[in-house]
Design a protein around this nucleic acid. Sequence first.
DNA 1: TACACTAATTATAAAGATTATTATTTAATA
DNA 2: TATTAAATAATAATCTTTATAATTAGTGTA
Lengths: 145, 145
Amino acid sequence: MSDEKLQEAIHTLKDSGVRITPQRHAVLEFLLNSMTHPTADEIYKALENKFPNMSVATVYNNLRVFKEIGLVRELTYGDSSSRFDCNTTDHYHVICESCGKIVDFHYPSLNEVESLAEKVTEFDVSHHRMEIYGTCSHCQASMAH
Amino acid sequence: MSDEKLQEAIHTLKDSGVRITPQRHAVLEFLLNSMTHPTADEIYKALENKFPNMSVATVYNNLRVFKEIGLVRELTYGDSSSRFDCNTTDHYHVICESCGKIVDFHYPSLNEVESLAEKVTEFDVSHHRMEIYGTCSHCQASMAH
DNA sequence: TACACTAATTATAAAGATTATTATTTAATA
DNA sequence: TATTAAATAATAATCTTTATAATTAGTGTA
């Protein structure tokens, strides 16, 4: 299923002259299969069984490469570390302020906002980001106690 | 003009039992008068003439206090450090990807998005954030060369 | 105005995330 | 298989933010 995406991503990388190393492959595979939006450290920890000698720098290096190629997006929220999202289709995120869970949320892209901003500010607008904050149902239940 | 806002803010602080120290006053005044959205370090550097002995921790402490009282908002973008905004009225930001300039942008709040997200994800939504990215007119002109 | 109480400040260390450096290893290609 | 440039590992360094502890200083009260 997501194996197809993986092959496609590897193809994209090779086309850009990027070598496919076992570590790189593993980071990419983990990202594609993860539905959460992991931090660099989470990726590092998830792969340390498979690659006991892997360096954190390798994770960061690969994430940078993937970003440059356009395979992943970096998400920066209020908390300390960045998160990485391999779903590059247009979607927004809903974030739980209590547990940090991030849920994808599909909504028609706010083109109107972009065009108005362009008019008002004279910026050449390239994109926008939006996040919605709240409490997930699980945490709501916990709080009820 | 903004002196009125300052007095009001000081009143709010006092009501919450927060002491008005010279450093705290200076950080608050600087924030209220700044139209940019400064980082903690920028505030620190701006005030080091007036307070040569002030500690960075003091800046952070005060920003935390102001945040808790609701006088300022913390903005976290892609770059390394947080920015602080004393304009707590509802508005969005347009950010220049070339020079980092941040411009306020007024747009009716996207309540519809919030309510749909609430329905779809079963979150108890509290708020949202949105930023628009692009190139400011100044940087557009520079690039034309 | 002086006093006492407690919060705020300073200085410093520490933590945590990310980037830089350099020697070593290795994937891809001929 | 040999070559070569790119990737990795190990480590140090940087940068932002928070924690700690001792000192200083607001603010209400007598």
